[in-house]
Write a protein that binds this DNA or RNA. Sequence first.
DNA 1: GAGGAGCTCTAAAACGTTTCAACGCAGATC
DNA 2: GATCTGCGTTGAAACGTTTTAGAGCTCCTC
Lengths: 329, 329
Amino acid sequence: MSTVGIRQVAEHAGVSPGTVSNVLNRPEKVSASTRARVETAIRELGFVRHASASTLRAGHSKTIGLSVIDIGNPFFTDVTAGVEDVASERGYAVLLSNSAGSTSKEERNLLVLAEQRVRGVLITPSDEGPGPLDRLRDRGINVVLVDHPAHRPDQCSVAVNDIIGGQTALTHLLSGGASRLAYVTGPLTIRQCLDRRLGAERALRGRPLRVVEMPTMTPRAGQQAAEKIVSEGDLPDAVFCANDLLALGMLRGLMHAGIRVPDDIALVGYDDIDFAAASAVSLTSIRQPTYQLGRVAAELLLDECDNPGTHAHQQIMFQPELIVRESTR
Amino acid sequence: MSTVGIRQVAEHAGVSPGTVSNVLNRPEKVSASTRARVETAIRELGFVRHASASTLRAGHSKTIGLSVIDIGNPFFTDVTAGVEDVASERGYAVLLSNSAGSTSKEERNLLVLAEQRVRGVLITPSDEGPGPLDRLRDRGINVVLVDHPAHRPDQCSVAVNDIIGGQTALTHLLSGGASRLAYVTGPLTIRQCLDRRLGAERALRGRPLRVVEMPTMTPRAGQQAAEKIVSEGDLPDAVFCANDLLALGMLRGLMHAGIRVPDDIALVGYDDIDFAAASAVSLTSIRQPTYQLGRVAAELLLDECDNPGTHAHQQIMFQPELIVRESTR
DNA sequence: GAGGAGCTCTAAAACGTTTCAACGCAGATC
DNA sequence: GATCTGCGTTGAAACGTTTTAGAGCTCCTC
């Protein structure tokens, strides 16, 4: 039970506690010799700064929060990696919380972040309700939206153009000769699903698009969608899925029904997760700059935290990219 | 910039700060009427407790740390879910940190956890070096090992019997009539890989096992392993992979080479991740009680935190379970 | 009606750090 | 030699809670 604090370090090094604090926080203010003395004292005593005391006195912590919808989705895992890299480069710690799609869990998590007095929050909002976010901002906690364009100019956001993504997918399918098209999606209340559909329809210029809406975006749901499409007859010759998880399930469902991909039905997914390249028939997909999304979001947030004066809010929109593989060849 | 603290709440409710603190921490000590008055004051003022001040004064936080090797692996995602559920049931917050296989990153993360004065740490240790863990324990931070049996009696741990797992997999393959067997694995320095091999050899009782060791445990590595096996000729008739990610890559590689699964080669994976059931040929796999692993680990840790007097250290070992699917039918 | 028991509630002292005004000292300037 | 400047360091006052001893009440008991 070591209770070695800044005082003990100070005593051991023959200086005052204030000087130790300076070594810790503004080393340039301390002469080289005393700094060295303090640093060896720190090492010898195994001193570990008490983050709570520091936060309490300083009024702010070296911590940011990251709230994602589903940590099990490889898409978010990659975003998280980007965020963590930037944060650790700049000396911040990341508090990761997972709302698992539940709004109430999201609110509970945001409360924890507020209690911890995090410096800022990165969040992929699960719905449009801006209430909890505004409450954070009122407390002086900076907020950057991830994978969601901001609806107000005084707010940073980082997103990927889902309309272009949907359009690209459909254009690719059409150029492959497809004519009877289907869109398999999660709930159309989700902005991403909606935008991708919008893009798809734009590419179709009025031609019909069969929409199959599933309640979740999992491989299981994708397989069920396949069974539905097969049982209803009148097969499409190309399917666009809102998500690679759906697409993988769809692929499996189609193969089970003896339908060949891409010969009978061409298939395009979305996100380009690792498993997309590794599936039995590798999956054509729309790649998003996932890791980069996390990096840039974190950079915007930390800029806002460290330079509150000069920070200019930005809404950044990345472009998605088509990755062609076997499922549309 | 709201700066409403316990003082403001107290004033607004006409009581002393101490009473507000009691409402927050020991509500039963406060009369129903004042409690109600304080609670409405809290609500009206939008008071959010300052976790740092609380931790500083109380000497300990309501937070535990969870350090995993690879948050991108569905196995760890499930463990995390179990941990988070237990923690939030008991009013604890979880600090999730990802070492991404790097020992230095793991040490940095543990330092952050120590600075935050977390009450305890759940960790899937990346190697045997007990140094950093002992340092935590010296600081009074409880440690529970996850997916790793403890090597000392004064330490809790939760693991799954990997020897039985390997044995089960091979027994299943042998009972299906296989005779030329291969084991595709990650680095054999990893305890899990080693134990699974041990189990496999135990089932073989001296018959030969072809071991293909890959540097990583990803779908890509699995596919390369398939290519290697095919190019070397003398095909096995059954392959056991140390991991579903390897198995999925193996499956794809075999199909590409025109080898049918399970007709030409039977295939067994490990972990039973969601994608195992969803792949083109669904994957026979060894299921581990992943979510349960996380739950039990968290329960042990919180018991140790909340009842330091009566807590009895336990080393818990779960048994894995064979899930038969198409890849061995 | 004095004394005690049992409840509520209060006042004030911590917890370990950061911050800031002030201080001492060396060298430069007149 | 007196005054100024600038650097490096110190001391003490915060930060917002929790905690503990005990103050003030009300109700009982004798």
